[in-house]
Simulated scan of single mutants.
Amino acid sequence: MRRVIVTIDRLTLKGVRYEDRHAVAQGLQEQLAALFAEPGMAERLVSLGDVPRLRVDSISSTGEATPRQVGSDAADGIAKGVGR
């Protein structure tokens, strides 16, 4: 089993209230942990090597989405960007 470390130095969020940033980060972290635990994902991440910048498509959430859900949606976009 390989160990993969993912570090996000900066995440740009437009349209998110400052006070919601921690809830967004929590949703992002939880969803990334779940997605990266999927079978075969570690191998895909390792095959990418060091990625200094990963640009993903814009995500959009409904107006009723919680900040945590926005983070989860962002994680889904990241996973899609690494070839999930």
Rank of each mutant, 00 (worst) to 15 (best):
M1S: 15
R2M: 15
R2G: 06
R2I: 13
R2H: 15
R3M: 12
V4C: 06
V4P: 00
V4G: 01
V4Y: 01
I5A: 09
I5Q: 09
V6N: 02
V6D: 06
V6Q: 03
T7N: 14
T7K: 10
T7D: 10
I8Y: 01
D9W: 07
D9A: 07
D9E: 14
R10H: 10
L11A: 13
L11Q: 02
T12H: 10
T12L: 07
L13D: 00
L13V: 11
L13W: 02
K14Q: 13
K14I: 09
K14V: 08
G15H: 04
G15V: 11
G15T: 10
V16Q: 07
V16L: 04
R17L: 12
R17N: 14
R17W: 04
Y18C: 02
Y18L: 10
Y18M: 13
E19S: 10
E19T: 03
D20F: 11
D20N: 11
H22W: 12
H22F: 12
H22C: 09
A23H: 07
A23D: 12
V24R: 07
A25L: 15
L28W: 05
L28N: 02
E30F: 07
E30K: 09
Q31K: 13
A33T: 14
A33M: 11
A34S: 12
A34W: 06
F36L: 08
F36D: 04
A37V: 00
E38L: 09
E38I: 00
G40S: 03
M41K: 03
M41P: 00
A42Y: 05
A42S: 13
R44N: 09
R44G: 04
L45F: 02
S47N: 09
S47H: 09
S47T: 07
S47E: 13
L48P: 03
L48Q: 11
G49I: 10
D50K: 11
R53H: 13
L54N: 07
L54W: 04
V56N: 08
D57Q: 14
S58H: 08
S58Y: 08
S58A: 15
I59V: 15
I59C: 14
S60K: 10
S60A: 15
S61M: 08
S61Y: 12
E64Y: 12
A65V: 10
T66L: 06
T66G: 00
R68K: 11
Q69D: 07
V70I: 14
G71N: 05
G71V: 08
G71S: 02
S72N: 01
S72Y: 02
D73F: 03
A74E: 03
A74M: 09
A75H: 01
D76R: 12
D76L: 10
G77I: 06
G77K: 00
I78G: 00
I78Q: 01
A79E: 01
A79R: 02
A79F: 05
K80H: 10
K80W: 12
V82H: 06
V82A: 05
G83P: 05
G83S: 05
G83R: 03
R84W: 15
R84S: 14
R84E: 13
